[in-house]
């Protein structure tokens, strides 16, 4: 793609802020989506991720800052003129319209001819695996099928940006995983810049090119799923995504000084070491300074909680070689696999 084209597809959010009734829910949010990129806004409920998505959609007005599409400022452009596609957790189909009528709705609004609408509808229903259901009414479909129709409806107008608001949350676990895979494949194929809101870290890690991890109205870190997991930059990101043990500097200096080598300079309390359970080695050792408190069997691994100089340390072990509660263990942490996060 040439530079101009890439710029045209780029969604850019700059220094966005928003308050409701004097309570700030978004602070200084900046985020760019490149052409074809899949971005997940990940965070606990109440972190502002849905508000951010609604501002991008034009359903809420930003308090401060701008949303641009291909360099064009979208301020004052109502949602209906942005040409975005949106899919909500609640399937939100028109209950009295057939599947085909639902999918063709946006095109009919734009005055497309009947022939154009029906051939496009057929194309999308084929793409989403709903080809045989064109004449059905929404209540005759399962939840997963309804969400496929909602997806087809959002894609029918060739949206400049696709916005997904927890689209899989209302589905059964099995359907969720299946539909997740289909959406992933569809998005890769169509290369429509996509922003998805989710509180499910697994969903975010599987789908996203980049994850924006949000907390209390701020983006704490943006990065590829690997970066976010392996190199969290803040205490929140480290503890929200995956399991981790956080150790303060004083503790590390005393009990695991090898980790200090990578520590950024700063005040004693400014950083903490983040250690993932799979990077902790525990060995049964009667002279060891850690004591097993609890063992959880998780299938492929066993997660051991050990008391280590007053800290609860998480470690993953092979399920065939798990210690029993009360066993004394020696601890070995891999300096190359630990990270320092802002406390």
């Amino acid at each position: 793609m040439d530079a101009v084209h890439a710029d045209a597809a780029k969604l850019s959010v700059d220094s966005l802020g928003k308050s409701f009734d004097g309570v700030a829910v978004l602070h200084d949010i900046s985020l760019q989506a490149q052409a074809g990129e899949f971005i997940c806004l990940l965070g606990p409920s109440g972190c502002g991720k849905t508000t951010l998505l609604r501002i991008i959609a034009g359903l809420e007005e930003p308090g401060t800052g701008t949303v641009r599409l291909g360099g064009r400022d979208l301020a004052g452009v109502p949602a209906r003129e942005r040409g975005f596609g949106i899919v909500f957790q609640s399937y939100s189909l028109f209950p009295y319209m057939t599947v085909a009528q639902n999918v063709g709705y946006g095109m009919r609004i734009r005055g497309a001819s009947g022939h154009a609408v029906s051939s496009r509808v057929d194309e999308l229903l084929g793409m989403t695996g709903m080809a045989g259901h064109a004449g059905r009414l929404p209540w005759q479909l399962s939840g997963g099928q309804q969400q496929r129709v909602a997806m087809a409806r959002a894609l029918a107008v060739n949206p400049a940006v696709l916005l997904l608001d927890e689209p899989f949350s209302a589905l059964d676990a099995r359907v969720r995983v299946q539909l997740r895979g289909e959406v992933h494949a569809l998005q890769r194929r169509l290369r429509i810049p996509t922003i998805m809101v989710t509180h499910d870290q697994e969903e975010a890690l599987v789908l996203a090119d980049r994850v924006a991890c949000m907390n209390e109205g701020r983006i704490e870190q943006v990065g590829t799923p690997r970066e976010i997991y392996a190199r969290p930059r803040t205490r929140f990101v480290a503890s929200f995504i995956g399991a981790a043990t956080l150790l303060d500097t004083t503790f590390v200096r005393e009990h695991a000084p090898a980790l200090l080598e990578d520590r950024p300079s700063g005040a004693e309390t400014a950083f903490e070491a983040c250690v993932r359970p799979e990077d902790v080695r525990l060995d049964v050792d009667p002279a060891g300074d850690a004591r097993v408190v609890d063992v959880q069997f998780l299938g492929s691994v066993a997660r051991v909680t050990a008391q280590w100089h007053g800290k609860s340390l998480l470690a993953d072990m092979h399920p065939s070689r798990t210690p029993a509660p009360g066993d004394a263990m020696s601890v070995w942490l891999d300096p190359s696999r630990s990270t320092w996060v802002a406390a």
């Binding site: 959609a57 034009g58 359903l59 109502p78 949602a79 209906r80 003129e81 942005r82 040409g83 975005f84 596609g85 949106i86 909500f88 957790q89 609640s90 939100s92 189909l93 028109f94 709705y105 946006g106 609004i109 734009r110 909602a150 409806r153 959002a154 107008v157 916005l163």
Partner: peptide, 22 residues
């Protein structure tokens, strides 16, 4: 349903359509 109204809005429906169709 508020979400349906918003979907219609994002698909390009104006006020009159939203009242009539949602």
């Amino acid at each position: 349903p508020a979400a349906l109204e918003e979907v219609a809005q994002c698909l390009g429906a104006g006020t009159a359509r939203r009242i009539g169709e949602v």
